[in-house]
C-alpha cells in the first residue's frame, strides 16, 4: 500500500472531544486530490505495534495543499483516538495512506440528501465541497445531542440547505419529514450510529425508495475487548491478541502477511477463512452477511474478535 509521510501543520479543538488535524507535504509539494467521502488510514506507532485507524477527510477534495481530518476522543477505545489527542502535535511527522473512497457520491443523482449523526458528519464535509463545485442540488442534515458536542458546526457553511438539528434544544431530526416528498432520482447518504442508519433504511423502504439510492457508511474504529489467541494455519504459530489490539494489528505485529484497506469492516479486503473455530466469533464488521456470520467460516480481522478455546485462520 502506497504511503505518504506528512507534517502535522495544525491541531485545533473543534469541541471538547473532537480535534481537527491538518497534514501537509514537508516539501510543500501538492498532495493527490480525492473524491468527496474519501478517507485516510493514519499510522500510530507505539512501542512494537503500529495502530492504524481510518478517518474521513474533511478538507476540500480538489485542494492538494493539505489533508484534514477530525478525530473524536474515545476514552473506551483501543487507544487510537487517544493517541491522536495526546501524542500528536504541530510539527510532528505522520504517516498516512493515500485517500481511498468507500462512500462516494453517486453523481447520477438528481439531488443528494446527506444525513450525518454526531462524528458521522465528517465524510459530508468533503462531499458538500464536491457538490458545490459540481453545482449539484443537495441538502445536509446534521444531528447532534447538544451544541457543545456538535463539533461539525464550525466547519459547515451558513446556507439555507444546511440544517442543524440539536435534540436538547428540541429540534430533533424528523426523518419522515426530510425524506418524504423528495424528487424522484434523489439519493440519500447516512453516516453515524447504527440506529440512525437503520432508521433511514426503514424510512426509505416505507417510502418506496429504490435500494440503490440509499447509501450509508458506518465504519468505526475497531473495538477493544478481552484478549484471545489465534492460530495461523500455515505456520502453526499462535498469536496473542491483546485487549487494546485488533486481530489485524496482532497479526501484523507477528509479521503475518495480510491484506487490508479500510480497517473499519467496510471494504472486504482483509476477509479471512476460518479453518477451525471452537467458540464464538464476535463479528463487528459491516461486510459479512447474516448467514456468513452465523456460519463462522469467515472473519474480518480488522474489526472482529473471538471468545472461545480455539480459532485457526487460513493464513
Amino acid at each position: 500500500m502506497k504511503k505518504l509521510t506528512l507534517k502535522v501543520t495544525a491541531v485545533e479543538h473543534l469541541s471538547p472531544l473532537v480535534k481537527r488535524f491538518r497534514f501537509e507535504d514537508p516539501t510543500g509539494a501538492s498532495l493527490p486530490v480525492f473524491s468527496g467521502g474519501a478517507h485516510l488510514t493514519v499510522e500510530m506507532p507505539e512501542g512494537d505495534t503500529i495502530r492504524r485507524n481510518s478517518y474521513s477527510l474533511i478538507s476540500d477534495p480538489y485542494d492538494g495543499s493539505g489533508y484534514e481530518i477530525a478525530v473524536r476522543r474515545e476514552d473506551k477505545g483501543r487507544g487510537g483516538s487517544l493517541y491522536m489527542h495526546t501524542k500528536v502535535s504541530e510539527g510532528d511527522d505522520i504517516t498516512v495512506s493515500l485517500p481511498s473512497n468507500l462512500f462516494q457520491l453517486d453523481l447520477r443523482a438528481k439531488k443528494h440528501v446527506l444525513i450525518g449523526g454526531g462524528i458521522g458528519i465528517t465524510p459530508f464535509l468533503s462531499q458538500l465541497r464536491q457538490l458545490d463545485m459540481e453545482q449539484k442540488p443537495y441538502e445536509l442534515h446534521y444531528a447532534a445531542r447538544s451544541r457543545e458536542e456538535a463539533a461539525g458546526i464550525k466547519l459547515l457553511p451558513q446556507a439555507a440547505h444546511i440544517h442543524v438539528h440539536i435534540s436538547e434544544e428540541g429540534s430533533r431530526m424528523d426523518l419522515g419529514a426530510i425524506l418524504d416528498g423528495q424528487p424522484l432520482g434523489t439519493h440519500v447518504y447516512t453516516c453515524g450510529p447504527d440506529g440512525l442508519i437503520t432508521a433511514v433504511a426503514d424510512q426509505t423502504a416505507r417510502l418506496g425508495w429504490p435500494k440503490a439510492a440509499v447509501h450509508s457508511e458506518a465504519f468505526t474504529a475497531p473495538p477493544p475487548g478481552e484478549p484471545f489467541d489465534v492460530v495461523v494455519k500455515s505456520s502453526g504459530k499462535t498469536v496473542h491478541v491483546k485487549a487494546d489490539q485488533s486481530l489485524l494489528e496482532a497479526l501484523e505485529a507477528a509479521k503475518v502477511d495480510i491484506d487490508y484497506s479500510c480497517r473499519g469492516g467496510g471494504c472486504g479486503r482483509c476477509q479471512t477463512k476460518v479453518t477451525a473455530c471452537d467458540g464464538r466469533i464476535l463479528h463487528n464488521d459491516h461486510w459479512l452477511s447474516e448467514d456468513e456470520r452465523a456460519a463462522q467460516k469467515d472473519i474480518m480481522p480488522c474489526m472482529s474478535r473471538f471468545k472461545g478455546t480455539r480459532l485457526e485462520l487460513d493464513l
Binding site: 502506497k2 480525492f34 495512506s97 481511498s100 479486503r269
Partner: peptide, 11 residues
C-alpha cells in the same frame, strides 16, 4: 472484479 474494486489511488 474483487481485485479491480480494491485498486487504490497511486497503484
Amino acid at each position: 472484479l474483487k481485485f479491480l474494486l480494491a485498486v487504490g489511488q497511486g497503484q
